[in-house]
Amino acid sequence: MAHTPADPSARRTAGHALVLTEQAAAEIRAELPSVADAVVAAIIAEVPSYEDAFSGPMGATINNAVQVALGGFLSLATRKRGVDPQSPNAPATQGAYQLGRGEARGGRTTDALLAAYRIGARVAWQRMSASAVVAGLDARTVASFAGLIFAYIDELSAASVAGHADESATSGRVRARLLDRVARHLLEGAAEEVVQTAAEHAGWAPPTTLTAVVLREAAARPVLAEVSPQTLQVAETPGLEDTVLLVPDAHGRRRAGLLRAVQGRDAVVGPGRPWLAVRGSYERAVRAHGLGLRGDTDEHLVRLVVGSDAEALADLRARVLAPLEELRPASAEKLVDTLRAWLLLQGRREEVAEALFVHPQTVRYRMGQVRELLGDRLDDPEEVLRLVVALAVP
């Protein structure tokens, strides 16, 4: 298990290992260039992903890091006990940290780098221990020498892992901000060139369509696990406390998969729209959410149309039902319910009675009252249209 540079147990391991004599250190130092070459050759041979790296721009950096690491180890081996060998600013540790960051920037994991460290430790031990024997070190000292090498490599590995983690976290935060900017531009209806530029900066490939989903923040994570990884997420849009997801290419047959992903999560799914026009999907989902509707907005189109202007709907209802104003509220409510069912079921008395749980004669009686109050309006198509719209939603 790798120790972090700040791990006190690692410092104790390194600090109490051994101190090489000046003569032994000098003889081993003279071999460092050839040891570095051997380490590099072994890494190239055994870690395929580094074969091209050493010949590319990273080659000089990695080669230099190997030599700095070996030099740092030798300096460590010649220090006196009690001296902290793991300064945060030590060149070798800093070099290892930067290597880890470089791997993260290149989109690679630390697997290859840690493998290179293991190979480097093995080759360095083989070559440097041979030099130590030639320098006259006894078996116990050579064994301690081995322990120090592997503890030192452990420290460098930990520094690289830390560098990789820091770079990944930084890059992730930066990209998250850039993606958030893309999403907000889309929801705000920004100019096409503005949105296109933001998408390029974020490295986000525009899809054919986007579908807006409004749901609670706690429900967003499980949904994100089931939809496209290119999905954009926005929290706390103006006037809305819930989270908004913009899901790529969930139109047509793929819409069913999105609806399954949000099922049971109290979500509202807007229509699929061309990606630059997703604001329309978002606005519909928000309207449905405000009306207390959930699920697929395609299933609530009538309610959305009727509820798009609440004041206009209230005025329309008041106008078409004005003849009933003189009735007691309970009586007026029964007549309105009967009229609504009669209009929607096209006057089929038996079905109206079944829907209202009353006798067909009751329906006949009530509709007789309605005709007395409304007169010939039920024979006027325009008036019937107004009544249907006004009474469409209970």
Rank of each mutant, 00 (worst) to 15 (best):
D298T: 13
L391H: 09
A310V: 13
E311S: 13
L313D: 10
L335N: 02
R364H: 13
L387W: 03
L321I: 06
D380T: 08
W342P: 01
G295A: 07
D298M: 12
R366L: 07
E333S: 09
L313P: 02
V302P: 02
A341C: 10
A353S: 10
L327H: 05
G292C: 01
G295V: 04
S308A: 14
A353G: 11
E351H: 13
A312E: 14
H359Y: 06
V352F: 12
V389D: 00
G375M: 11
R349N: 12
V384Y: 08
R348C: 00
E325R: 13
P323T: 07
E299F: 08
V384H: 07
L339V: 01
L343Q: 05
A341H: 05
R377Y: 02
V286F: 11
E372P: 00
M367C: 08
T338H: 07
V286M: 10
E351C: 02
R303K: 10
Q369G: 00
R287T: 15
D376C: 01
L373K: 14
L313N: 03
R377S: 14
E372C: 00
L373T: 06
H300G: 02
R366W: 06
D380I: 04
V286S: 07
G307H: 05
V306Q: 08
A310N: 05
P329Y: 02
Q346H: 13
S331E: 15
A310P: 05
D298Q: 14
L374I: 01
Q369L: 06
M367K: 10
G375L: 09
R317F: 03
L304N: 10
P329Q: 07
L327T: 04
G347A: 09
V305S: 09
R319I: 00
E351T: 13
L304Q: 09
K334A: 11
R348S: 04
L327W: 06
A390I: 07
M367F: 07
L339S: 00
H289L: 05
L356V: 10
E383N: 03
E311W: 11
V336L: 02
P360S: 06
G295N: 08
Q346S: 14
L345N: 01
L321R: 07
V336N: 01
V336P: 00
A355K: 01
T338V: 13
K334M: 06
D380K: 07
A314P: 02
P329G: 04
A330V: 15
E351V: 13
A355N: 05
A312C: 01
A332H: 08
G368Q: 02
F357G: 14
A312D: 12
R366F: 03
T362E: 06
E383R: 11
L344R: 09
T338C: 10
T297H: 08
Q361V: 13
F357R: 12
A355E: 08
G375Q: 06
D376R: 13
T362H: 04
L374V: 09
